[in-house]
């Protein structure tokens, strides 16, 4: 994780291209929906983050070799 500089510039969170990931395209009623599959590589990405008092850029690949838990939630200050 590298710290990013002061000011209002910050790294853009972005998906990274990969040969094959767990994302499958599912077309239902003309809508496009994507869901992940277990047993397939996790989609790679990088994103800005707050970590121990610093603003850093995180790349999922930095954590390879470790068990990772990735959590999504609706928003900061939500209650549960």
């Amino acid at each position: 994780m590298k710290e990013f500089g002061p000011g209002c510039q910050r790294p853009k969170g972005q998906p990274k291209p990969a040969a094959e990931t767990a994302v499958v395209q599912e077309v239902q009623k003309g809508e496009e929906r994507k869901m992940i599959q277990v047993g397939k590589p996790a989609p790679l990405f990088s994103a800005p983050a707050f970590y121990q008092g610093k603003f850093v850029e995180v790349d999922l690949e930095e954590f390879k070799g470790n068990w990772m838990m990735l959590c999504f939630y609706p928003g900061d200050f939500t209650f549960v």
Binding site: I36, A42, M68, M69, L70, C71, F72, P74
Partner: peptide, 8 residues
Amino acid sequence: ETRGRFLI
């Protein structure tokens, strides 16, 4: 985002 938790 919904509450999603992934183990990798």
